[in-house]
Amino acid sequence: MEKQEDCLVIGGHRFYSRFILGSGKYSLQLIEAAVRDAGAEIVTLAVRRANTKEQENILDYIPKGVTLLPNTSGARNADEAVRIAHLARELGCGDFVKIEIMRDSKYLLPDNGETIKATERLAKEGFVVMPYMYPDLNVARDLVEAGAAAVMPLAAPIGSNKGLATKEFIQILIDEIDLPIIVDAGIGKPSEACAAMEMGAAAIMANTALATAGNLPLMAAAFKDAIAAGRKAYLAGLGRVLTRGAAASDPLTGFLHD
């Protein structure tokens, strides 16, 4: 097999890190160290009403050269997501957008139907659209048709740190969808990030797992290593697992003639 440069391509842009870092729920002063120790090339942001009391601009804390991925959190339907995406673009961060539409404030589960609509509209406008979704194969196919640049299924309820609760369904998306599958939400530990990468996920997005860690930059580094290890294991091809015991039985191929 030919040796190829292993990079993540999203909407024609190439990335060498497969760790997308969230910037929520921790202090701005920690962002630079987190990005550095995570080796992240993509950082997510939210769009909110500006408060005149806070004079600090988060963009001043994010190292130059990092791709900004604004999300549409706060949107409850496709119209609101499109509106937030437009505002994000006006804030001057390029054409990437992570669609996040929640119609449910208790579990914060994404609304797949509205997400498809918003993806279609924003992709037509030229955005690089990365929809966050509940892992459903039919929806993922609709997102491909709608022009998504990647698909971001949740591993567990957002912020829960519960790990790969939807593992079987994420594996189906990895097997069937010809776009990067980026596991988003619910990943709580580096080992879970590694497991998702071994399965063939293209990247991991994490935020709460870091924000709630004892030492944030150190946890960022741990995730970085785990994601890189999982990627290497995937590329290497996992070896034999001895759990599939062969049951002794009559030979099935005894009838063959030659």
């Binding site: 929520g24 962002i31 769009v47 909110r48 500006a50 604004p70 505002l87 994000a88 939400a185 935020n207």
Partner: peptide, 9 residues
Amino acid sequence: EIVCFMGGG
């Protein structure tokens, strides 16, 4: 509406 970026996931 006046908006800005803030931390988010």
